[in-house]
Design a protein around this nucleic acid. Structure first.
Lengths: 343, 343
DNA sequence: GGAATGAATGAAACCGGTTACATTGCTACT
DNA sequence: AGTAGCAATGTAACCGGTTTCATTCATTCC
């Protein structure tokens, strides 16, 4: 089949050991020999087998990435960043889609363990114990998730998360400043760690401000889930909605448009992630920026760093665009559009 | 580190050969022995090393997928379908993003060859010769691309493409029926095979109908490329635009909105792929449906089928929604919305 | 001149599986 | 009873690399 190192060695008149050394440069080989081996390898179009090398060295040059949904832009930019940074170092990526399913996630981990050098779990829906068990076998990077404070963290586990608190605090204050006093939050899947963070942030800030907060959820944090989730929002009670992510916000926007409820005049909408190219949503979406690209960059850094930094955090902030405005029912001038809104 | 088959064999008091046979069921092993080996394996939490197995059997249980942009929804649904179908058979996916760059694509192929059982090249930007060379080494599935008719096709090359001709023909006729006589087509990257198909289809149909067609292109067939591409469209001359894909159409829609040109009243817009969840675009996008999910399903089938079907085709058709209407300047009733449009 | 030093290379073990071939032991037939 | 035939199991080679250890040979120092 493909040329092996033995063929190269024979053709160059050296032993396989010398051929291996000449090609990998791992040990001293006299210049003339090295040159000859390399030339022969070139002629025979030799490419070392990664399998053979992996078995011998114990390192595969691949990492596994498991995420809940490959079609979600949040994860695709995360993945794109990883692929770019790791690919530049000739590291391959085995990708697995858990479809938000813990059982499937476990079996993906099982399949990958042993053929990758490290595992990156994005928004893992597993329990802490399962994650710790995986980290016992190989280095693991948890992205967009942290273990419970109490848990004793295995040595080879890194944790990279978005610190959504500042962004969500800002978002609530922004709405408060616009006169909103009753808002809704549409949360994501049940076992989402980041969902809990967002709920907790909002709950705390709203309590501080004396703003009423109604929480509902969608198990499917994408566009269609967002559309359906409008049914769970009392649009008579509430004047603003914060969504788990931009996809859900986009779905809400679309459903609101169908229902004839004007955004931002009647209801303000805030997304999360800033994952949409600017201009895609209409009106353009006020959102909590927490770059998944940066998350990917940090995860890649955790993989490449031999010391394996234990934790990392991506900051967040509010980006105000055109989907939020003065509260409905209050005669006032919209701070953003300048158009006049009356009762 | 991890338990090996030799440890299992020793613990069960059999040879490695028997252990291997008992665990894989490849040959006859007496029931009691088999039961004992399996129980020991269970106790020791043994998982066979895919590396060792790959080296011995010559098959890795992984396939490589190379695509031009992991963040493009067209490719992510393609990838998602592949992952689902192949994952169900416990086949792993190594993913590579070529960033529309032939050089990078070649190096990804080089990296993957030898550690995958087959390669899936989506919208490859390589030359036919490069592709044939890859197919000499391992089975290759070309997706969304066909070799030149003349090229002698290697044995292990499958070709799965979208037959966009019916859809694009329908699209042009649709516009013609609405009274449009001057239309524009915004094409994708220079070396895109599907782009050429689309250009050729439109050129042919427009010539038949006597409709004038102006072609421009964007090298970046995504939302922002679409926004920029409006600059290359003479909106005074043309009353309808067909886009390379839905992302570009979405960008056009956004840029047109900014410019204050109403869609579909002033200009009709048609996308391609039907890759957007319904309701995401506003107005909802008339588009040529050519499911990339189906493309993925066919590619997966080509991988799984031991006979390797040589070619497959995904049909296309026009889906009329709300971004196309009667030509601007003609007093008439819009066929779709029922709203009256006058000069 | 002889021994110590060290550089270049080769032989062989090893990574963790699979499998061709050899061996053992039992059944069944003549 | 002797042997052919077959099922269960073991031995060892093999996949394609890397790496330890041994060997060879030239240099340098005393």
């Amino acid at each position: 089949m493909a040329t092996t190192i033995r063929q190269v060695a024979t053709a160059a008149g050296v032993s396989v050991a010398t051929a291996s050394r000449a090609l990998s440069g791992s040990a001293a080989v006299v210049a003339s020999t090295k040159e000859r081996v390399c030339r022969v390898a070139e002629e025979l179009d030799y490419t070392p087998s990664r399998l053979g090398r992996s078995l011998a060295t114990g390192s595969t040059g691949n990492v596994g990435v498991i995420l809940p949904d490959v079609t979600n832009p949040f994860y695709t930019s995360f993945l794109a960043e990883l692929e770019t940074v790791l690919g530049a170092r000739d590291i391959g990526i085995l990708v697995g889609d858990s479809h938000e399913n813990p059982e499937l996630e476990r079996s993906l981990i099982r399949r990958m363990t042993g053929q990758v050098d490290a595992l990156i779990l994005a928004s893992s829906r597993l329990q802490d114990a399962d994650i710790a068990m995986a980290a016992d076998r190989l280095p693991v990077v948890l992205a967009n998730r942290m273990l419970e404070p109490g848990t004793d963290c295995p040595d080879r586990l890194s944790q990279i998360a978005l610190d959504i608190d500042p962004g969500f605090t800002e978002a609530a204050r922004h709405l408060w400043a616009l006169g909103h006093s009753q808002i809704a939050y549409v949360d994501g899947p049940l076992h989402s760690w980041s969902g809990r963070q967002k709920r907790e942030s909002l709950t705390r800030v709203c309590a501080e401000l004396g703003m009423s907060l109604i929480i509902s959820r969608t198990e499917q944090p994408d566009f269609s889930g967002g559309r359906e989730s409008l049914a769970g929002v009392d649009t008579d009670e509430v004047t603003a909605v914060i969504a788990f992510n931009d996809q859900v916000a986009l779905g809400l926007l679309s459903a609101l448009r169908d229902t004839g409820i004007a955004v931002p005049e009647r209801i303000s909408v805030i997304g999360c992630d800033d994952s949409l190219p600017n201009g895609l949503a209409w009106p353009s979406l006020t959102t909590v920026d927490s770059s998944s690209r940066t998350l990917g960059a940090l995860a890649a850094a955790a993989i490449l760093d031999p010391l394996h930094q234990r934790t990392g955090t991506v900051p967040s902030r509010l980006i105000v665009r055109e989907s939020t405005a003065q509260r409905w029912g209050r005669a006032a001038t919209s701070v953003h559009t300048g158009t006049s809104v009356v009762t």
